[in-house]
């Protein structure tokens, strides 16, 4: 079973930095949104290599499927 991991850092002012691992694509942002109710308070989103790799894989997969049809 794959593991999903989120590391939340709460700074001295109560601001949160969260880093995810083991999520597929946009689901990491959705998980953070569910967890931290981030609506309207996110100042910066930095997507990790893993995120881009998974997106690329997804895109390639979609192209493959399209190619087949």
């Amino acid at each position: 079973m794959p593991e999903q991991k989120i590391v939340i850092t709460i700074d001295d002012d109560g601001a949160i930095t969260a880093k995810t691992a083991g999520f597929k694509g946009e689901s990491c942002l959705e998980a953070l949104e569910d967890l931290l109710e981030l609506n309207g308070v996110v100042g910066e989103v930095k997507k990790t290599d893993e995120y881009h790799q998974l997106q690329a894989v997804k895109k390639a997969h979609i192209q493959t499927i399209k190619g087949r049809s």
Binding site: P2, Q4, K5, I6, I8, T9, I10
Partner: peptide
């Protein structure tokens, strides 16, 4: 999620959340 609480080198609270899917 299972929650593990630690502090980073700056003394800030760090929560490590894990779950199996």
């Amino acid at each position: 999620y299972s929650v593990k609480e630690t502090h980073n080198i700056k003394g800030q609270i760090q929560l490590v959340l894990t779950r199996m899917v």
